[in-house]
Amino acid sequence: MLSAHSLRLGYRGRWVLQIENLELPAGSRIALVGPNGSGKSTLLRILAFIEQPTHGELRFDGQPVRTRRDRLAARRRVTLVEQQPLLFDTTVKANLMYALRLRHVRHADAADLMRSAVERVGIEHLVTRSARELSGGEIQRVAIARALVLRPEVLLLDEPQSSADQEMVSRLPALMEELRAAGTTVCFSSHRLEEAYRLADRIIALVDGKLSPAAPENLFRTTVPPGTGPRVVQAGPLALLVVTDKVGPATVAIPADDIVVSTEPLHSSARNQFHGKIVRLADDGRGGVALTVDVGTELLVRITRAALADLNLSVGSSVVLSIKTMAVRVF
């Protein structure tokens, strides 16, 4: 459906985005994950055709999008809901109808489209209100409805879970399912991995503007001190013993499957042990369970359901995480 090739975006003399190949197949649900500042929002804006890359090409259904006219046509098929969306300074209804008016949709059809979008995000009570009076969560919901009204072929959402209110977050899975049934391609960014796993078919990790070669969990930016053999690097607040040839700025990845969870400290070969508490539990969509453990920073750990039951773990449980030095990837 939508694809990007050899994408480069320069800003103040450096590349903030370098993506060789990215495909959003028709009907897929893709999560874009990565730390803050990794280029997720920028990539979404480029995919929405509202920001132009310095180099590279976007293709829609295999056709390159090159000219101004191509981009306008493409923007009528893709839409983006920004992390902090803006509503025009008028009523909610006028906001919802804006794009339909641009497209000269017949009044009766427009009313139907609006009603259905309004119901899907549950904002019936807001329609006649002025956009100025809404709270942040309400603005987010109206913005999502405004995008749904358009029935876009590709829907891009920037951090839909971070600015949405609790009710919207609980509606997201059903909404994503409906969009999949309708054949809509959805791509959203997220910094909460377990949510990304729950909502997406595929996860793409972005680190420093590049697609990450490692699994997207537990990525940290670090600086490796000079020397050889095992060295201690800082992964957020964690001091982590790693083995690497790299020196200088690097990315540290702790694979979620390679973290051992126990209720007591282990006498083992794992050199990295951290105490923490379970803050969230979620089905990982692959038969296992994704635990988010706060050890000063949040680490995602995947274990089996049986292990979870054996250890009698729930949200709030104190646990110890053990990570083998060799399991930590530095690149």
Binding site: R45, A48, F49, I50, L72, R75, R76, T79, L80, V81, E82, Q84, P85, L86, F88, Y98, A99, L102, R103, R146, A147, L150
Partner: peptide, 18 residues
């Protein structure tokens, strides 16, 4: 005017005049 106004209009399919 908030730069998001321009971006929002673009994401909703507005042409340059709109």
């Amino acid at each position: 005017i908030d730069p998001r106004v321009r971006r929002t209009a673009l994401t909703l399919g507005a042409g340059p005049w709109r």
